[in-house]
């Protein structure tokens, strides 16, 4: 087996590598083509990518539960959380604990509502989270009227925008989060149960896994992470505005899919989501450097998502064909080498 074949075999199991390669290539091209690119601009990209990573990780948990589950409420949660942070913290570090508590509480509440609708009432996840998003949109409008000013707690501001020896604190937070997630997925019982539920729900149930609990926790994780992200994002931009979470809806899904997490569920890659987030931000940055209008940036993002899905779809197809082939074999009894008719 030569090196290329060995790599392709390895890459099949480590799908995150593609997004990592993408980051590397695009980064090199940008560095060569433009002189403006430097390490400090990379840290800027890391900073933007960190916010996307946090939402993406949450989205990844939901996608991994399978059956086309997607959390469409993340955008509204981000926006609402940013407003709630303004309302609770009021620019005072002293109120920070309350603010973080409120953000977590908001995430828990939305996650619980989504779980109730999806798991308890059997409503398809897309519709359920869509409807939740509507309700949150109104809550956002109401809190928008209630806020008195855009003051951000200095401590939170430091967390969201500060750097330690050139490295954004936010990037450290995101990378630490990715590390924890990767550990949970790989080395804890929960990670294994999540993957099992996403691969084959019936088999999971018959293996005594409590599917409902696993699915519900994925939705709760997603909402809590989106909510915390909203808190930090608000601090980063120094306030909050309506629709501020909107770009994260498609981008979080794109980051998950690009990062090698299977859209059909069962297999997740936290590292892949991190690299894919960086890649997406790099693409947007590139387009800004090239001077493409904002509309063109949307178009490119949309095409990237569809293109990656169309490619990934084929892998799943061939795998499915393999399963079906094996299924045929199962439908029949084997050869036993002769017909034995028992005497009467």
């Amino acid at each position: 087996m030569n090196g290329a074949a060995a790599f392709s075999l390895w890459a099949q199991k480590n799908r995150w590598v593609w997004s990592a390669i993408g980051v590397l290539v695009l980064w090199l091209v940008l560095s060569v083509v433009t002189n403006r690119f430097s390490l400090s601009s990379l840290s800027g990209i890391m900073l933007s990518a960190s916010f996307l990573t946090v939402v993406g990780i949450g989205q990844m948990f939901v996608v991994t539960t399978g059956r086309g589950n997607i959390d469409l409420s993340v955008a509204s949660v981000i926006t609402l959380s940013a407003f709630v942070a303004l309302l609770t913290i009021k620019g005072q570090d002293a109120n920070l604990a309350i603010g973080v508590g409120a953000a977590i509480l908001l995430g828990l509440a939305v996650g619980a509502l989504n779980s109730l609708l999806v798991v308890g009432l059997n409503i398809p996840a897309i519709i359920a989270t869509l409807a939740t998003g509507y309700v949150l949109a109104t809550a956002t409008l109401l809190s928008n009227r209630a806020i008195s000013g855009f003051a951000v707690s200095p401590l939170l501001k430091t967390l969201a925008t500060g750097r330690v020896s050139g490295v954004p604190i936010m990037a450290v937070i995101a990378i630490a989060g990715v590390a924890v997630t990767a550990f949970v997925l790989r080395y804890t019982v929960f990670g294994q149960l999540l993957s099992a539920v996403g691969q084959n729900r019936t088999a999971a149930r018959l293996a005594a896994i409590r599917n409902n609990r696993v699915i519900a926790s994925a939705f709760i994780i997603s909402s809590v992470l989106a909510s915390l992200n909203g808190l930090l994002l608000g601090a980063y931009i120094g306030g909050a505005f309506l629709e501020m979470g909107q770009p994260y809806l498609l981008q979080s899904i794109a980051a998950v899919v690009l990062g090698g997490t299977l859209i059909f569920g069962g297999s997740a890659s936290a590292v892949g989501t991190l690299f894919a987030s960086i890649l997406l931000i790099l693409i947007v940055t590139t387009m800004q450097i090239v001077g493409l209008p904002p509309g063109a940036q949307d178009i490119v993002q949309g095409i990237v998502v569809i293109f990656v899905l169309a490619l990934a779809g084929r892998q799943v197809l061939s795998r499915r064909a393999a399963v079906n082939g094996a299924g045929d074999a199962d439908a029949v009894k084997p050869e036993t080498g002769g017909i034995a008719i028992r005497p009467e």
Partner: peptide, 16 residues
Amino acid sequence: ARKIPAIVVTLGASFI
């Protein structure tokens, strides 16, 4: 033809 989830594809298309 590719058996890919319509929700994500159409969401991507919405950006286009």
